[in-house]
Design a protein around this nucleic acid. Structure first.
Lengths: 144, 144
DNA sequence: CTATATTGGTTCGTTAATAGGACCATTCTA
DNA sequence: TAGAATGGTCCTATTAACGAACCAATATAG
């Protein structure tokens, strides 16, 4: 074993496995067309709607990319664009009922992963892991 | 604070920051055309060459994708395809001198990140983080 | 109060990444 | 030795991503 992979690579491996499982659960629930990039954008939408540029920021993609992703999500019925009452230029991207049916599925699978990881590591190591990751956000999370 | 992000998402955030920095260092060293996907493939190449299908496996992409990536890397002068002496069907993808100039740059930046993270967390928390991530590989790493 | 700058989004055009399917050559195996 | 499996490639299509140019609405300078 004695593998000595970079810490960031080990994070990548684990997070990719999680993403893959969550997306699998989403697909299994019948939401076949949703892709990873689209899901990433969906996650950034607040309950009362979010501007496209904010969404782009959160997902760390260009505005044009966010536009394209929202286009697809809109065509598939997961979001709608409504005018921002406070600013005539802006529009708010809002989740539809269709999307609201989707979120619990994703959250449940995420829960399941979290539980399995905790079982595998034991409570202290899991707590330590989360603690370290939270601390790392201070130096790695450009948003917040 | 009290954020309660999923563990896997926090991993994603940190690993993305690291990838972004390593790629930045690579670009800053003059290797402008190399992309993330290409770098990911490069990392899987052993010193004495590696088969394309193994590469595809390691990077978790389809053979066709690996073919396309190797095409680009080959055109840019980072790898070469040589016949596998032991198997007439196979060809070995090997790093060129150009690529060998690149790897230390990536490794150095990775080192720097590792050091900064350790400083930010302190030695025990960093050790605990690595330990937990190594353990998680047992349930999340499809390769090994 | 107008002229200009900024902001929020979209459109156009291009490139990278990815994979399904078909396919060929070589090697393995029953 | 015939048929299955393996290693790669080609063709094609879709998604993701972004620079550049652009329009409409708002904010700001003079």
């Amino acid at each position: 074993m004695a593998d000595e992979l970079p810490t960031s690579l080990m994070m990548f491996i684990a997070s990719r496995a999680a993403v893959s499982r969550v997306l699998g659960a989403i697909h299994a629930a019948g939401h076949d067309e949703v892709t990873i990039a689209q899901a990433r954008l969906l996650m950034g939408i607040d309950e009362d709607g979010t501007r496209l540029s904010v969404l782009a920021d959160r997902a760390q993609v260009a505005k044009q990319t966010a536009t394209a992703l929202v286009d697809k999500l809109e065509r598939a019925g997961y979001v709608e664009r409504v005018r921002d009452p406070g600013d005539g230029r802006a529009r708010l991207v809002r989740l539809t009922g269709h999307a609201h049916a989707l979120l619990p599925v994703a959250r449940a699978e995420e829960e399941r992963i979290e539980t399995e990881w905790a079982e595998h590591l034991g409570p202290e190591r899991m707590a330590g892991l989360r603690d370290a990751l939270e601390a790392l956000r201070e130096v790695t999370d450009p948003y917040r």
